[in-house]
Design a protein around this nucleic acid. Structure first.
Length: 369
DNA sequence: ATCTGTGTTGAC
DNA sequence: TCAACACAGATG
């Protein structure tokens, strides 16, 4: 809602690493691998066979086993790496304990990078069920970088499940459209959001976004919407999950502080402040699903009012691709300009996809979008 | 000290 | 495009 931000959970730019070979590969001479077994090396992919029985045992212990799966490579410690190539570059998908986990990670990446017809290790080609459709929609609603990030953090499954819960579509294909009402919404990335009710809003105070790392929930709202059942919960607090418009889930500790007689969100809050770059006066708003699951939602918007902080806003270009809005700052900034300025108005515009692998370390792509 | 994932190469 | 291999650099 509101001019706010589209998907900034992507902003964890560092996470995607694309290996790029420096234009000239001069600097490193591969150390002389020339050693007794060198003639045995590179027997071709998939081969861990030792040709020379003389050194068989010795060589075998040294040689890493090839994977039977596409996109899966062995790691020296017995774990498995997953990788996919795009534009002559390797995109690392993380390391996994099990070979087939790595293979699944590859499959997911392949579907995101190459479409649903991509060749995969496990996914059957051809027939589609509704679940696959949902997954495809999920994949395409996230940037490649986000997907890679999930794979590397092993959170893909969770995020997919989370996302599935948010779809309105039921088995019959009826959608719970809500004519004339505004409590069903379309997120910035085109995801359908569940019907929800507005609970309350609060303009955050300086201390809410300061070093106290807490947000005070006005008592009336706290007691009405987030009742703490018993004394134990009050003092120790409970964990509440809030989903933001990007689909990201924020977990906050919620408790009652006797000292100040306040209801507060504590643990997790400062992270939200930081990531959304909240400033005093900005509005946070809380909603709740009207469905049985009572999912909580959090949203935020920049300070409104007669005296809006005007700040120089970089012009942006936006493209919509696969239902995802892709922003590009106008000029030559490949990072760095980001958190700068403390400028409210445009905090919404982040280098969403700039941080993605298409662009990392690769300024030239920026122009290409 | 251990592990990840990048640099790099050559096969396909 | 892909996997093999070595190992730099990150991480603990």
């Amino acid at each position: 809602m509101d001019g706010s931000c589209i998907d900034e959970s992507t902003a964890t730019s560092d996470s995607i690493s694309v290996s790029i070979s420096p234009t000239s590969a001069v600097s490193h001479f591969p150390p002389p691998t020339k050693s007794p077994e060198s003639p045995l090396c590179r027997v071709g992919s998939g081969s861990s066979v030792i040709l020379d029985s003389e050194f068989g045992v010795e060589a075998e212990s040294r040689k890493l086993p090839s994977s039977k799966y596409k996109g899966v490579v062995p790691q020296p410690n017995g774990r498995w790496g997953a990788q996919i190539y795009e534009k002559h570059q390797r995109v690392w998908l993380g390391t996994f304990n099990e070979e087939d986990e790595a293979a699944k990670a590859y499959d997911i990446a392949a579907q995101r990078f190459r479409g649903r017809d991509a060749i995969t290790n496990f996914k059957p080609q051809g027939e589609e069920n509704e679940d696959d459709d949902i997954e495809t929609a999920f994949l395409n609603s996230r940037s490649k970088a986000e997907i890679v990030d999930m794979l590397r953090k092993h959170t893909y499954k969770d995020e997919l499940e989370q996302s599935k819960r948010n779809y309105l579509i039921d088995g019959q294909g009826k959608q719970h459209r809500n004519p004339g009402a505004n409590n069903a919404a379309l997120s910035g990335s085109g995801r359908v959001l569940k019907e929800r009710e507005q609970l309350f809003e609060k303009a955050v105070t300086p201390s809410d976004v300061g070093k106290l790392n807490r947000l005070v929930i006005p008592k009336q709202h706290a007691e009405k919407y987030f009742p703490l059942q018993n004394v134990s919960n009050s003092t120790k607090g409970v964990l509440l999950n809030f989903e933001d418009i990007t689909g990201k889930v924020w977990r906050f500790r919620y408790s009652y502080w006797n000292s100040s007689q306040s209801y507060v969100l504590t643990k997790g809050w400062s992270r939200f402040v930081k990531e959304k770059n909240l400033k005093a006066g900005d509005i946070v708003s809380f909603q709740r699903s009207t469905g049985p699951d009572k999912q909580l939602y959090i949203d935020w918007k920049v300070k409104t009012g007669p005296n809006p902080v005007v700040c120089s806003v970089k012009p942006v270009q936006m493209v919509r691709l696969f239902g995802v809005n892709i922003f590009k700052l106008a000029e030559n900034n490949s990072g760095g300009a980001e958190g700068a300025g403390g400028c409210n108005g445009k905090r919404s515009i982040r280098e969403v996809e700039l941080s993605s692998l298409e662009c990392i370390k690769k300024q030239r792509i920026i122009g290409a979008l």
